[in-house]
Design a binder for these strands. Structure first.
Lengths: 230, 230
DNA sequence: CATAAACAGACCGACGGTCGGTTTGCAAGG
DNA sequence: CCTTGCAAACCGACCGTCGGTCTGTTTATG
């Protein structure tokens, strides 16, 4: 068979691309090493030359995805002269804007991740993402704690609390996504909006800010991401 | 071979007992159906007569464990004439006391669950537990919302937020457990205590209560559960 | 004594992973 | 510019094991 020789980095990235697609489509367990080989156009030996185990591919995909979040936040960190509150708000906005700009991809990813057979994939991605974002959030909150704008005893613990809230809105997200096409899309969107607003309020309260300080979502965000067709 | 005939319920429970042990010891993926068969003293045919798939055993184990939590809370629900605040506090206390009373078993379980190869087991148990506890917490918070003692827009969302905090202290728990035997057990215990205190404060703030209202842990709880040997 | 539930165990396809061998790019020596 | 050597990239047959199936046997029960 005609071999195509790629550099290690290129091949690795290519396998990761295919893996990400397959994992999101079929789930991690349901995706066979054979599937990965075929999709990447590489043999079994070739595959195991780049990855020691199937599990390593999952880890690498998770890391790559987490890198997107960290990069967005780090850009905000590099802006000089911001208060901690502004930095936190802009970080959240950056994440939000990224989601809005890649709406269809994000939606497909969420729809796949929330399927029950994809729980391992979801949990792994979530865990790695939190690990990656935690130090950045800790840094922001530590600054706000020191200048007195955030009322928290420990920045690291506060960041953990805020990031733990991520799993709070999954029900609402799942319902909003699965309701597409059915009649109650509008109600599901409203419920999701309410859940996200509440998540913002919870962040406020954790940091000791008045309700509504943090702009976790702007009005119309959900409807823009998940348009309700009439 | 001499067969031992048990009723369906007995055999099921027995397999579940063995499975729980093995899952906590070796992890879910690492435990083979063969392991379960041998441990329960049943053949493959016998095993698959009671469970359609290995996955079903995991689900059943998770449900059984979640039942412990719900039962403890439901006992508090049955006490008449309590305010919502008292009911929430007593529910947390009941869960705490159960942990203290079964300290060694709980510790072993946590130590096992926090091992990286047991993430699927952990996530599954956690998910099922949250699903089981959520309606009870929602009911309590709804009562407190209506009598004005809790300042939350929606009881269900508030309950989700509080339950989502569970994953907030895992780092500290893991460190406290793994530090047993090493020199820094005292520091790890102190860190865990601080994390749990903070979790209590976060619950207060989510519900719009003054810091320190909810007694999430009493002083000395951690040291009682994880004694530091000198 | 018949019927169904409980159980046995040989068997299967597929999966993750290994291994000895082959092909390619590339740099150094003539 | 052409060998030649070598490591990295790649191949694909092969292996042990796993989850699950199926046919048949044994036991309880009415």
């Amino acid at each position: 068979m005609a071999r195509s020789y790629l550099s290690a980095d290129e091949r690795r990235e290519q396998i990761l691309d295919c893996a990400q697609n397959l994992f999101f489509t079929k789930g991690f367990e349901a995706t066979t090493v054979q599937d990965l080989m075929v999709a990447a156009g590489v043999s079994k030996g070739g595959f195991y030359h780049h990855f020691a185990a199937k599990e390593d591919v999952l880890e690498a995909v998770s890391q790559r995805l987490a890198g997107v979040s960290t990069q967005l936040i780090e850009e905000v960190m590099d802006v000089p002269g911001l208060t901690a509150f502004e930095r936190l708000n802009q970080s959240l906005r950056a994440l939000r804007r990224f989601k809005a700009e890649h709406a269809q991809g994000i939606l497909a990813a969420f729809a796949a991740l929330l399927r029950p057979e994809n729980m391992t994939l979801y949990n792994r991605i979530n865990r790695v993402n939190i690990e990656a974002v935690l130090p950045l959030f800790t840094e922001i909150i530590a600054a706000g704690r020191e200048d007195g704008s955030f009322d928290v005893p420990d920045a690291h613990l506060a960041a953990q609390a805020i990031l733990a809230l991520g799993s709070m809105t999954h029900d609402a997200v799942a319902r909003a996504i699965t309701s597409k096409g059915t009649g109650d899309g509008r109600a599901a969107n409203a419920a999701l909006s309410a859940a996200l607003d509440w998540q913002g309020v919870v962040i406020d309260r954790i940091l000791g800010l008045p309700d509504g300080s943090i702009q976790f979502v702007e009005p119309g965000f959900v409807d823009a991401l998940l348009p309700v067709e009439d």
